[in-house]
Write a protein that binds this DNA or RNA. Structure first.
Length: 422
RNA sequence: GGAGGCGUAUCCUAAUUGGCUAAGGAGCCGGUCUCGAAAAUCGGUGGGGUUGACGCCCCUUGUGGGUUCGAGUCCCACCGCCUCCGCCA
C-alpha cells in the first residue's frame, strides 16, 4: 500500500509510477478525490464529537451536583447531537472504507533504479554466469524424457488432478527432495532462520502481501472457510509478523520450504507441455525484513544468495532487472534469475527477487523502532531460492548424457547418495 | 463438535455497582550521584488521525455491531488463547 500522505502531497509521483507501469491514472484520481472528501467529512464529524463529549461531561457534573433540571435539559440536547454524530460518522466511515478499498488496488511505486520500459522486452540483462553446454547429441526435453523413462508421469497426474499437475517417481522424486534439502541447508548456513509454515492462510493474510484483492482469480480458495492455498511461502513468511513491532536487530532473514498453488488463470496457451508451469510446485523462499536504509543492499545480497544455489549446482544462468512495465504489483525493484533450459533453447525464470520496500509492511502493519525512538515501517524483500520444480527440470536437461542417464550435480551427491540417475 | 473461562498500551497488571484524566509496575529515554558502571533517586515515555508545524481536538481496552446523553464496564456476533469432554493422525 502506498502512503495516503504521499498521494495527497505528491500525486504526480504516483501518476508517473502508473505511467511507467503502463497503467491509467483513473484510480489515482478517484483516490485523490476521496481523500479530500474524507478529510472534509472528518472535520465535520470530529467537531460534533467534541461538542457531544463536552456536553456529556457537563451532564456528569450536573448529576454530581444533583441539578436535575439542568441535567435533563442537557440530555435532550445531547441526544440530538448524538444522533447527528451517528449520521455524520456513518458517512465519514463509508468514504474511508471506499478509499481503503481503492488503495489496495494501487501498485507499488517502482524504484528509481528500476529500468523504465513497456514490457518484458525492455528488461535489462545485468550479468551472465556459466556457459550452456555444447553436446553432439540431442538432449531430450524433460516432457519427453519423463514419460520415456517413467520418471515423470503426466498421464496419471492428469487422471487424478487434471492438467498441469505432475507425478515424480523413484530417482526424480528423491531428486526433488534432495534439491529442497540442499537449498535449505545452504541458506541455513548463511544465517537464514528456517521456518515451516501453514500452506493455507486467511483472506487478510493474502491481502497483507498484495495477492488480494486484485488477483483473487489467481489463487485457490477453500470455499466454506474462505481460506486460500498459498501461491508462495512469501505470503505466510511476511505475514507472520502482521501487526508486530520487530524487536532486536534488523535484518531478519527467513527461509522456508513450501508447496505453492497457482491457478495460472489466463495462461492457457503458455508452457502447456512439461512441468514448467503447473498448479502445484515446491519452492524454497527467502524473505528479509530490513531497515529502510538498507533494503537495496539487502536486495543485492538476497539475489546473490539465490544465485549461489545455481552456482553450486553449476547451472548456467543470467540475472535480469525487470523494467517498470514488467515488475510485479508489490515490487519496487525485481531481479529475475533465469536458468538455461535446452528444451526451450533459452533462459527461463527460476527465481524472482524483489524489494517491496514498505509496500507490504504498510499493508501488514509491520514496524520497528528506529534510533530516534520513532516507529517506522520496515522494508521487506522476498526471493525464490529457488523454485524446486524448475531446478529439477534444469538438472534433467543440463545434466543429461548421451546414454539417457543424468549426472547428479556434485553438490547434490551427498543428498542423493548416488552419482547418476536413470 | 459440546461445556466453561479469558483477551487492557512494548511487557506484566488494576479499574464490581456505566460518569470527569485507563491507576500502578517493569522496560525504554534523559538528569542527579559515580573515575566509570550497577544500585538508589528525580523527570519523561502507548498507537493512529487531524495540522505546513505546534497546541487544541478526534479515535483507540481482540474485531464489528447494539443499548445509553455517556461503555474497559451492559447486550449480540465474530476472531484468538486456555481448561475439561468427545472425535482423531
Amino acid at each position: 500500500m502506498i502512503d495516503v500522505r504521499l498521494i495527497r502531497e505528491n500525486p504526480e509521483i504516483v501518476r508517473r509510477a502508473l505511467e511507467y507501469r503502463q497503467m491509467t491514472s483513473e484510480l489515482l484520481d478517484e483516490i485523490v478525490d476521496l481523500e479530500s472528501k474524507r478529510r472534509e467529512a472528518l472535520q465535520v464529524v470530529e467537531q460534533k464529537k467534541a461538542e457531544r463529549n463536552s456536553i456529556s461531561s457537563e451532564i456528569a457534573r450536573a448529576k454530581a451536583s444533583k441539578d436535575e433540571n439542568l441535567s435533563v435539559s442537557l440530555m435532550d440536547r445531547a441526544k440530538e447531537i448524538s444522533s447527528e454524530v451517528k449520521e455524520l460518522d456513518l458517512r465519514a466511515s463509508q468514504i474511508e472504507e471506499e478509499l481503503k478499498k481503492k488503495l489496495l488496488y494501487l501498485p507499488n511505486i517502482p524504484s528509481s533504479t528500476t529500468p523504465v520500459g513497456k514490457s518484458e522486452e525492455d528488461n535489462v540483462v545485468v550479468r551472465m554466469w556459466g556457459e550452456p553446454r555444447k553436446v553432439d547429441f540431442e538432449i531430450r526435453p524433460h516432457w519427453d524424457y519423463g514419460p520415456e523413462t517413467g520418471l515423470i508421469d503426466f498421464e496419471r497426474a492428469a487422471k487424478i488432478s487434471g492438467a498441469r499437475f505432475t507425478i515424480l517417481r523413484r530417482d526424480l522424486a528423491r531428486l526433488e527432495r534432495a534439491i529442497a534439502n540442499f537449498m535449505l541447508d545452504l541458506h541455513h548456513s548463511k544465517g537464514y532462520e528456517e521456518v515451516a509454515l501453514p500452506f493455507m492462510v486467511k483472506r487478510d493474510t493474502m491481502q497483507a502481501t498484495g495477492q488480494l484483492p486484485k488477483f483473487e482469480e489467481e489463487a485457490y480458495r477453500i470455499d466454506p472457510d474462505d481460506m486460500f492455498m498459498i501461491p508462495t511461502a512469501e505470503v505466510p513468511l511476511v505475514s507472520q509478523h502482521m501487526d508486530e513491532i520487530l524487536e532486536g536487530d534488523l535484518p531478519k532473514k527467513y527461509t522456508a520450504y513450501s508447496a505453492c498453488f497457482r491457478r495460472e488463470a489466463g495462461s492457457y496457451g503458455k508452457d502447456v507441455r512439461g512441468m514448467i508451469r503447473v498448479h502445484q510446485f515446491d519452492k524454497v523462499e527467502l524473505v528479509w525484513f530490513t531497515h529502510p536504509d538498507d533494503s537495496y543492499d539487502a536486495l543485492e545480497n538476497l539475489t546473490a544468495d539465490a544465485e549461489d544455489v545455481l552456482r553450486k549446482l553449476e547451472l548456467p544462468y543470467r540475472v535480469v532487472s525487470l523494467c517498470t512495465g514488467d515488475i510485479g504489483f508489490a515490487a519496487a525493484k525485481t531481479y529475475d534469475l533465469e536458468v538455461w533450459l535446452p528444451s526451450y533453447n533459452t533462459y527461463r525464470e527460476i527465481s524472482s527477487c524483489s524489494n517491496v520496500e514498505d509496500f507490504q509492511p504498510r499493508r501488514a502493519n509491520i514496524r520497528f523502532r528506529d534510533v530516534d525512538n520513532k516507529l517506522k515501517f520496515v522494508h521487506c524483500l522476498n526471493g525464490s531460492g529457488l523454485a524446486v520444480g524448475r531446478t529439477l527440470v534444469a538438472i534433467v536437461e543440463n545434466y543429461q548424457r548421451r546414454d539417457g542417464k543424468i549426472d547428479v550435480p556434485k553438490a547434490l551427491v551427498p543428498y542423493m547418495r548416488q552419482e547418476v540417475i536413470g
